[in-house]
Amino acid sequence: MLSGFVFDVEGTLVDSVPQNLRSLQDALEHAGHRVPYQTLQLYSGLDGDQTLQLAIPEGSERERKEILAEQGAIYERDYLSSVKPFEGVRDVFRVLTEMGGRVALATDCKGIAFKRYLSLLNADDYIAATACGDDVEHGKPDPRLVGIALRKLALPGAQSVMVGDTPYDAEAGLEAGAKAAGVLTGGFSEETLSQAGCFAVAEDVRALLAHLLRGEPEPARAQLDLLRKSA
C-alpha cells in the first residue's frame, strides 16, 4: 500500500479551472492579446510564465509578469467566490488517513486563494503537510513543489503518489520519484493523463480512492463499497 498521498488542489479538489482560465483570458485581453479559451485549456495547470511563453511567444518577460499579476487580481475579485469543492474530498482524506496514509497538498496557488480553498475543503485535520506557490519560484511540471511535500511528509517518493488533474501534475510527481494518478475534473482526457504516466485515472478523487489504497487499478464497485463503509 502507498503511504503518502500528495494532492494538487485547483481542478483536483476544487472546481476552479474554468474560473482560472477565464481570469487569464481577461488579463490577456486587457493587454491586447486574444487567446482562445481552448488554447489556454491545453496549458491548464502549467506554470504561469511557461503558459504565457507558449500562448504569446512575442510577449516580453516584463509583460508576462504584469499579465500574471493582473490575472491574480481579476481571479480574486471576480471569480474566486464562485469556486466550490468537489464532492467527497473530506471523506477520501479521512479514509486514507484511517488506513495509515499521510495526506499532503502540493499546489501552485497561494495567498488568499489558497486560504479560501482550505476553508472550502474543511479537511485540515486530515492534511499532514502543504506546499504551495509561496514555497517555490516555478510551478509544475517542475518537481520541486512535490519534493517539498514529500519531505514534509518524511516519506520517500517510492511510497507515495501525486494526484492531479493535468499531465503537468503527473510529470512533476514522476520527476519527484513518486507514482502519478489522475482525475478528469480538470478538462484533460483519460488518454492524455495515462500517456503522461498516471497508473490510474478516474472521474474524480472519490472514484479514485480504491486505486490509491491499492496502488493499482480497482473495479468501480469496490470503490463505492469503501466509501459506504467509511460513512
Rank of each mutant, 00 (worst) to 15 (best):
V6I: 13
F7C: 00
D8S: 01
D8A: 01
V9Y: 08
E10R: 01
V14D: 01
D15A: 08
D15W: 06
S16P: 02
V17T: 01
R22F: 01
S23V: 05
L24W: 00
D26V: 02
A27I: 03
H30W: 02
H30C: 04
P36M: 09
Q38G: 04
L42W: 01
G45I: 03
G45Q: 09
G45V: 05
G48F: 07
Q50T: 12
Q50D: 14
L52I: 06
L54E: 11
E61T: 11
R62V: 11
E66V: 06
I67E: 01
A69W: 12
E70R: 15
E70V: 12
D78C: 07
D78F: 13
D78Y: 14
K84Q: 05
F86E: 12
F86Y: 15
G88A: 04
R90V: 09
D91P: 13
R94Q: 13
L96A: 04
L96S: 01
G100I: 11
T107F: 03
T107N: 08
C109H: 14
C109W: 10
G111Q: 10
G111R: 12
I112Y: 02
K115P: 13
K115D: 15
R116L: 12
L120C: 07
A128Q: 10
A129H: 02
T130V: 14
T130D: 04
A131R: 11
G133E: 12
G133S: 12
E137Y: 14
G139T: 08
D142T: 02
D142Y: 02
P143T: 07
P143N: 09
R144D: 12
K152H: 14
A154H: 05
L155G: 06
A158E: 11
V161R: 00
V163N: 10
D165C: 00
T166I: 03
G182S: 06
V183W: 09
V183N: 04
G186N: 03
G187N: 06
G187F: 05
E190Q: 09
T192D: 05
L193D: 03
S194G: 14
Q195M: 10
A196R: 08
A196Y: 11
G197N: 04
V201I: 05
R206A: 15
L209I: 08
L212D: 10
L213H: 10
G215Q: 00
E216F: 06
E216R: 14
A220D: 11
R221S: 08
R221D: 07
A222W: 14
Q223R: 15
L227V: 15
K229R: 15
S230F: 10
A231V: 13
